[in-house]
């Protein structure tokens, strides 16, 4: 058994050694879970993609409009999710994929709002993010976005919660070390929305942020607050260049 553990550790250390600071969480998976993510049939996240396709085509709101009526095939939104969150100069705020879809839903379709982290919203975000699979994460952090970006960086480095730990404490200082049997990741966000075995379900980047906050016994962040989105922007910037994997599979 010890040999197996050693092999697993060696495998994870060697994978992506050329880029030690930005390594997808995929590199920390064992062969079974890599295969599960790579298998477009058995990857459980694909259940949400399927559901997203049904919703994409479903008419709703007073004008009975569907996503397809405006956007055509989902693939037309390729090269979007990998560039989010982004700063909108007209509204002077950051938007992530969840918010763009929610806005589309209420403002253009004039349909019932989708609640945060609901299965329907996750299905649509996963469908759209899936279109960008393989594209590198690339967010704009300069110009008007720079203030939010710096806010996100500060948030990443700020210790919080009763356990008084920052994102950086674990995902920069300690990445690669083990908490119990679990190797601490580099905190890359190129897999989201992803199927996490611990959740037995799909989750967004904001769900992962909430989970980490709970783990250090910190107050949850409002997932639509500019603060939370600034942190997401910083996380996406840290993950720049990594290929989007949605829906990834993680432990």
């Amino acid at each position: 058994m010890k040999c197996w553990l050693l092999l697993l550790l060696l495998a994870t250390c060697c994978a992506g050694a050329d880029q030690p600071d930005r390594r997808s969480g995929y590199s920390l998976l064992g062969p079974d879970l890599r295969a599960l993510q790579d298998d477009d049939f058995a990857n459980p996240g694909m259940l949400w993609v399927d559901r997203g396709e049904r919703l994409w085509n479903a008419a709703s709101g007073p004008n009975q409009q569907s996503c397809r009526d405006c956007h055509g095939d989902p693939v037309n939104l390729r090269d979007l999710a990998n560039r989010l969150p982004r700063f909108d100069a007209t509204t002077n705020r950051l938007d992530n994929l969840d918010m763009l879809i929610r806005q589309c839903r209420t403002q253009r379709q004039q349909a019932e709002a989708l609640t945060h982290e609901s299965e329907d919203l996750l299905a649509l975000t996963t469908l759209v993010a899936h279109q960008s699979r393989g594209l590198p994460l690339e967010v704009v952090v300069d110009g008007p976005a720079s203030t939010a970006f710096e806010q996100g960086r500060a948030s990443f480095e700020r210790r919080r919660g009763q356990l008084d730990l920052s994102c950086a404490d674990c995902h920069e200082k300690l990445r690669g070390a083990r908490l119990r049997g679990e190797t601490i990741s580099a905190g890359m966000v190129n897999g989201f929305p992803l199927y996490r075995l611990t959740w037995e379900g799909l989750g967004s980047r904001q769900r992962m942020i909430r989970w980490c906050n709970e783990a250090v016994r910190a107050k949850p962040m409002d997932p639509e607050s500019q603060r939370a989105l600034a942190l997401e922007l910083y996380l996406a910037w840290r993950s720049r260049g990594l290929a989007l994997e949605a829906p990834a599979v993680r432990r």
Binding site: R158, R159, R160, G161, Q162, D164, N213, E214, R217, A218, K219, P220
Partner: peptide, 10 residues
């Protein structure tokens, strides 16, 4: 010196 501690632990 703690920040943003969740309710039950504050």
């Amino acid at each position: 010196g703690r920040h943003e501690v969740a309710g039950p632990y504050a």
